[in-house]
């Protein structure tokens, strides 16, 4: 099993619903976030283009954050989900330094936190909160090993990219372009 997410930049409207939904679902404190939206504007009026991306931890296949963690707090569970065990985390910040996507933050309670792919929902068969709320349905989540999953299907039919592939982390969030 290999969970992954695809983000359709052609449909995302940058509304940030995925951000609030994550906040209320996962008790992310105000002022912090596990996902966020980037808007890239390119061109000169009136020939302009926008790319909107909903970003979060990439649950990298080759995850430097897990490797550099001195206590094993950062670890990988079934489906390639990268998690942090709060009780094991000493808050050394190494994983934050190691992430090319700035996907982690230091929780005000001391431990490091980040997107969990809503593992608590996914293991019950639900979609992650951000995916379930997105009004444009531009987030696709599922198992890459299952050719019929939403994410496999959409990746089969669309062009996509990942972020900073040269960082060598083998990220598992795909951006449909």
């Amino acid at each position: 099993m290999r969970y992954a997410m695809a983000v359709d930049t052609k449909k995302c409207v940058g509304c940030s619903d995925c951000v609030v939904a994550c906040q209320t679902e996962n008790n992310v404190p105000i002022g912090y976030c596990r996902d966020w939206i980037v808007e890239n504007v390119d061109g000169t009026y009136p020939n302009v283009e926008i790319e909107l991306r909903s970003e979060r931890c990439n649950h990298c296949d080759n995850s430097p954050c897990v490797r550099c963690c001195p206590t094993g707090a950062s670890h990988i569970v079934e489906g390639g989900i990268v998690l942090v065990t709060h009780e094991k985390c000493i808050g050394c910040g190494a994983c934050i330094q190691s992430c090319p996507y700035d996907a982690r933050y230091s929780h005000p309670d001391g431990y490091v936190d980040k997107c969990t792919f809503c593992e608590h929902r996914v293991k019950k068969g639900d979609q992650p909160a951000c995916v379930a709320v997105c009004p444009t349905k531009c987030l696709y989540f599922g198992d890459l090993d299952d050719p019929y999953s939403d994410v496999s299907q959409v990746l089969k039919h669309r062009k996509f990219k990942v972020l900073a592939p040269e960082a060598g982390t083998n990220p598992q969030i795909y951006f449909l372009t």
Partner: peptide, 26 residues
């Protein structure tokens, strides 16, 4: 002093993680 979750400091010495410089440094 740099650790943000100080009371869990001892977790450093519950494991050796060779891939983590922080770990073998400790």
């Amino acid at each position: 002093l740099d650790l943000k979750h100080k009371l869990f400091f001892w977790q450093l010495y519950t494991t050796i993680r060779l891939e983590s410089p922080m770990s073998w440094g400790a």
